[in-house]
Nucleic acid binder design. Structure first.
Length: 475
RNA sequence: UCCUCGAUAGCUCAAUGGCAGAGCAUCCGGCUGUUAACCGGAGGGUUGUAGGUUCGAGUCCUACUCGGGGAGCCA
């Protein structure tokens, strides 16, 4: 049994406590334990959480959490308490609590931490259907009076300044829970499919693709760059383990100021030896379907909290529409959108193409010239590559980019020259084509974009616990 | 880097070129079933910064600072 009250249990002079005057100098309260009756472990109440409270219907329960909101009249007090799993209404009456403790609770500010004991029961008037009739209550720490996040609306800049507190609100909590489920189910899917997680380095000596602007940092007399992709390293580890994935943060120093960009984001990158382009698309489709299914099955409450109708996600089943780049260009031109064969797609193009379906859409066969140097050309049409983007519905953009990789040594050397990349930086990468090279493929999926799509967010920043953007590195 | 929009109380926002306001939060008081509870009262402002036009500027003009989201780039 946890002894959660030990030496910290102190009987504080009642002249000091329960007086609102005290709150004008909240510094004096720091580090103290306040509270009602000493609730030691021999009480019959059982520990519970909001999410499991229905199991104790009609019984005494003990709940540890934070005061989210309260409504009171002179003799009855409704405390809305959150505990990380959900929110529940706790009812305290002056009759039951006594004058002094009731006054103290009535004067608590938002986010004060509490331990309550009371009778769990169904009540149609309570949000969530259950409430706790409080018998005992202990104030673990009385919050200062100036908690910045109210239940009213706030602007994005203010909320991001308060991100360390903003994450406590039900919607932000739900998003982070969905994010955790997305990451967990991706690992589950890949592990069950025979992939081995192999971490790629964050500190790298040069750009992987030679395109994006990277963050750099001094590294014992030379320059290191924060990784923008683990792919090149994956291409090494597949030759040791067959099927691998790396999963971690990646960094882009691009000055992108849009709702679809962060400077630091998480990406999962599966890669497999002997995997062909067709098998790659099949893998992407199966993985996305699996993860969406998991989110529907395990995050129903969170989806409801964020306002995402699960029916929107129920539609995400194979097969996903597939469109060639050639057809996509024709379709865009037919709809009066300015594009020529050979141009890369911009955001407006992707948004239009994605709007053609309720499901994610594969676009395949991009022009060789606009894509990365390592992509395998189509054997029948060398002007296009075996690459595909997976565009999410509802304007969430490219959530996956993948391709078959060049396995031929001579062709890869030629491409490195064509892209004016420093040959010496790719010596080890070329080794992979010298010693037992095989056709292979892989893709990268952006976690925040996926989570934003699942939760129907209007900005990627809410899909990250502490988002990093061009204008923001704090908190 | 470019385009565009914005900055007024702790927060969200009002204010025809003419006395700077409301709701929430905070503080005081009231209320035994509240649902972002409600009712009464109080405190809270160098209107982003600097200059200009004007009898008079939160409002009009110029520059700057900071920020929003869009382009480019990409997950």
């Amino acid at each position: 049994m946890t002894r959660w009250i030990t030496s910290a249990t102190i009987d504080i002079d009642s002249d000091v406590l329960g007086r609102k005057a005290t709150l004008r100098a909240p510094e004096a309260l720091r580090g103290t334990w306040l509270g009602g009756k000493d609730m030691s472990e021999q009480t019959e109440a059982r520990d519970t959480t909001v999410s499991a409270v229905s199991e104790l219907d009609g019984k005494l329960a003990r709940l540890k959490g934070w005061l989210y909101n309260k409504r009171s009249s002179g003799k009855i007090l409704f405390m809305i308490i959150r505990d990380g799993t959900g929110v529940i209404q706790c009812v305290a009456t002056k009759n039951e609590m006594g004058e002094e403790l009731f006054r103290r609770l009535d004067g608590l500010h938002q986010e004060s931490s509490l331990i309550v004991e009371g009778l769990v029961h169904k009540d149609h008037r309570a949000p969530g259907g259950y409430e706790i009739q409080v018998k005992e209550c202990r104030v673990v720490s009385e919050a200062w009076p100036d908690y910045p996040i109210t239940l009213k609306e706030h602007g994005p800049e203010f909320l991001l300044d308060q991100r360390h507190l903003w994450i406590r609100t039900p919607t932000q909590r739900a998003i982070l829970a969905v994010r955790a489920e997305v990451m967990r189910s991706i690992r589950e899917f890949l592990d069950n499919d025979g992939f081995v997680e192999v971490s790629a380095p964050i500190l790298t000596p040069s750009a992987c693709e030679g395109t994006s602007t990277l963050f750099s940092t001094p590294y014992f007399g030379e320059k290191a760059y924060l990784s923008q992709s683990g792919q090149l390293y994956n291409e090494a580890t597949i030759m040791a383990l067959g099927k691998v994935y790396c999963f971690g943060p990646t960094f882009r120093a691009e000055k992108s100021k849009t709702r679809r960009h962060l400077t630091e984001f998480w990406m999962v990158e599966p890669e497999a030896a002997f995997m062909t382009f067709e098998e790659l698309l099949d893998l992407e489709e199966r993985m996305v379907t699996f993860v969406v299914r998991r989110v529907i099955d395990r995050c129903s409450k969170e989806l409801e909290q964020v306002g995402r109708d699960p029916k929107d996600l129920e539609r995400i089943v194979p097969p996903f529409p597939r469109m060639t780049y050639d057809d996509a260009v024709k379709l865009l031109q037919e709809n009066g959108i300015d594009i020529q064969w050979g141009d890369d797609f911009g955001s407006p193009h992707e948004t239009f193409l994605a709007s053609q379906s309720d499901k994610p859409v594969f676009v395949t066969g991009y022009p060789t010239k606009v894509k990365a140097f390592y992509m395998e050309p189509d054997p029948e049409r060398p002007e296009i590559v075996l690459a595909s983007d997976l565009l999410a519905p509802e304007g969430y953009g490219e959530i996956i980019g993948g391709s078959q990789r060049i396995h031929d040594y001579d062709l890869l050397v030629q491409r490195i020259k064509e892209h004016n990349l420093p040959m010496e930086a790719y010596d080890w990468y070329l080794d992979l084509r010298k010693f037992g090279t095989v056709p292979h493929s892989g893709f990268g999926l952006g976690i925040e974009r996926f989570v934003a799509w699942m939760c129907h967010l209007d900005h990627l920043r809410e899909a990250s616990p502490f988002p990093r953007m061009i204008t923001r590195m704090r908190p």
